[in-house]
């Protein structure tokens, strides 16, 4: 176990989150059970007040969680200097068996909390507060996920072992390794690239068509395919190294922190697409602006990742 300042900071915030989220959780259960917008009882009145507290707490957690995610990657990068064999966050994250799950939960929670806030904003504009029960039911699920994430995070940092040699991105993200990643390396490059651009074309198509359900599905698929193509194909051009497939290393200084830009644009693009579609399916009067936001940020992401191979080709005249 380490006692670095970064980890202590993360611990403190985790504990604050946990305490506040537990408050919100208890109130949410009460609201889901007893909420009745037509009632004029004392209870309903106090529940309405408490709903605002829960919303505030969730906003607080979400707003901090966004930069905290980046900070987590930063920290993992820094610790990689201490753990033998780890060159970047990938080695640190994968030195623990559930490291990857921690990441999955972190991203999932970001999406859920973000969606919750979008739903909340919509709910507040509705004078009947018709989504209140729904949003607090969602929070009950989100709370469980948050607890799992925090539990994973604390046990992650406390089980890091300085003495253990870990395999880092070079071996983890390669065809030869036996890790769970190696399965995806069976996909040939041209297939993944074609799928990627095809999906993107569909995304553009649906965003002009303005149909919610296909747009939602295509955004989810686009998120997954983007990550896969980033690992399999585009990453190698960022590193200008055909064997390096790491999705973390380009978060480092050597690559001008381009990874943060990539992940943030991808997140905003797909998130606004997904949450916007769901909200619009719930209420038809939701503004259509999200199609534009989603399209702009997704296109930005595609433009950046596409630029790397093209620039490489122009410079060197060959493909990797």
């Amino acid at each position: 176990m380490f006692l670095t300042p970064e980890i202590i900071a993360i611990y403190i915030l985790d504990i604050i989150f946990l305490v506040f989220a537990s408050f919100a959780f208890i109130i949410s259960i009460m609201i889901v059970k007893k909420w009745d917008i037509n009632s004029t009882s004392e209870l309903q009145y106090s529940l309405e007040k408490r709903a605002i507290l829960v919303a505030t707490i969730i906003k607080y957690i979400f707003i901090l969680k966004l930069p905290l995610f980046i900070f987590f990657v930063f920290t993992a990068d820094k610790i990689s200097g201490v753990i033998t064999g780890a060159m970047c966050a990938a080695g640190v994250v994968n030195s623990i068996s559930f490291g990857l799950w921690l990441f999955v939960f972190k991203i999932l929670n970001l999406f859920i909390f973000g969606f919750w806030i979008a739903l909340h904003v919509k709910d507040m504009q509705d004078e009947k507060l018709s989504f209140t029960k729904l949003k607090f039911s969602i929070f009950i699920v989100a709370f469980v996920l948050l607890v799992v994430e925090i539990f994973y995070e604390i046990s992650f940092f406390s089980s890091l072992d300085v003495d253990k040699i870990v395999s880092c991105c070079g071996t983890l993200f390669s065809v030869a390794s036996s890790s769970s990643f190696s399965l995806i390396f069976n996909i040939p490059n041209n297939v993944i690239i074609t799928t990627f651009y095809l999906i993107f074309a569909l995304l553009v198509f649906f965003s002009f068509l303005k149909k919610e359900l296909p747009f939602l599905v295509i955004n989810v698929i686009f998120f997954i395919v983007s990550l896969l193509s980033l690992i399999l194909f585009f990453g190698t051009y960022i590193y200008e190294l055909p064997t390096h497939h790491c999705p973390y290393c380009f978060l480092q200084r050597e690559y001008y922190y381009v990874g943060y830009l990539l992940y943030i644009t991808l997140f905003i693009g797909t998130f606004s697409g997904i949450s916007g579609s769901i909200l619009r399916m719930l209420r038809a009067d939701y503004k259509k602006i999200f199609y534009k936001t989603s399209l702009i940020f997704n296109s930005l992401y595609v433009a950046i990742v596409t630029a790397y191979p093209i620039i490489f080709y122009i410079k060197n005249g060959v493909w990797l």
Binding site: P5, I8, A9, I16, F20
Partner: peptide, 24 residues
Amino acid sequence: FLLFFLTIPIYIAAIIIPSWRVAS
């Protein structure tokens, strides 16, 4: 970043519940 996370969230967290109580 580290300094930010160690100070400002703690302050904000301390005022959430009292402010809510005042506001409601």
